[in-house]
Computed example of a mutant assay.
Amino acid sequence: MTYQNILSELKEQILYVTINREQKLNALNKETLNELADVIAFASSADEVRGVLLTGAGEKAFVAGADISEFSDYTGVQGEELARIGQERVFDAIERCPKPFVAAINGFALGGGLELAMACHIRVASDTSKLGLPEVSLGLIPGYGGTQRLTQLVGKGRAIELIATADMIPATQAEKIGLVNHVVPQAELIAKAEELLNKIKLRAPLAIAAAIKAVNSALAFDENGFETEIKEFGKCFNTLDFKEGTSAFLEKRKPTFSGK
């Protein structure tokens, strides 16, 4: 697929994905969501991808929200379909991806942009970033999993406050309440995201995938997270990576994992 709204480049097993609509503050329109769905599917299935670094073009915005002009005249049925398709193909797909997604938040992360960042497994923000869910200002609520993931990350009280006030908060406050993992100067943002992914690349890929699945199951209403963990733990024993990891430990050398 040829992309018009995102840039995608694979370097040293890290897939760099940049939402490239800088003049529109990288707002999410239908085509951008379609392209994201495609690149997420590629990352999930490609053995050569060990992690994904997701960011926005320029220094003003990660993603400043959804493209409101596309749905301003929607009916309730159309609105529900918009949320359902977007959640399934993009936001839930990122969360369930067996490869870790690191969001490098380089500016405004608002509405659908913050929802996109929250779907990622790890979030790093520049110290100039501002984050928020302003949907109630438009007579809406977050529709791409924002009410759920924000509550999981910061708790019910803070989630309702942020959503109901529609306030933007600075990156330093976002870090304090657990909304982002790290805050760094803008010039160091990509390097910090790469540092995290390069550490993860040294670990066993199948074990990383199992860990993501088990952690996700802790928050799934229809799963027993402990049971998922037990099963995923057991499956790891059948991998070559387990044999390599334990052999390397006993032989006092660094392991070389194959992802098998």
Rank of each mutant, 00 (worst) to 15 (best):
Q13F: 00
L82A: 05
V63N: 05
I141L: 11
S8V: 11
L28T: 04
E81V: 01
E135L: 06
E59Y: 02
T239S: 15
D127Q: 15
E22V: 04
P98F: 14
E95S: 15
G155F: 10
G155K: 08
K156D: 10
S137A: 12
A61H: 06
F249N: 11
D92C: 06
N34Q: 14
L179K: 03
G111L: 02
Q23G: 00
I68S: 07
E229L: 13
E22F: 09
A187Q: 15
F257K: 02
P255I: 03
K260Q: 11
V90Y: 04
S44P: 07
S69G: 09
G225F: 02
G139Q: 07
A46S: 12
V183G: 13
L25Q: 05
A37W: 04
E244F: 05
I94F: 10
K11P: 01
N238K: 13
G65D: 04
K201S: 12
K231G: 03
P205L: 11
K176A: 15
R89E: 04
G51I: 06
E115L: 06
D167K: 07
A109L: 15
K156H: 09
N26C: 00
R21K: 15
I208E: 08
A193E: 10
A166R: 14
K60W: 05
K243G: 06
Y3I: 03
S129E: 13
A174I: 01
S126W: 10
F108Y: 08
I177G: 05
I6C: 00
E244W: 00
A166M: 14
R50K: 12
R21T: 13
A46R: 03
G225P: 06
L15I: 11
E70S: 08
K192E: 15
D38K: 03
F42T: 03
K213C: 13
Q173D: 08
Q87A: 14
A61M: 05
G146M: 05
L36I: 09
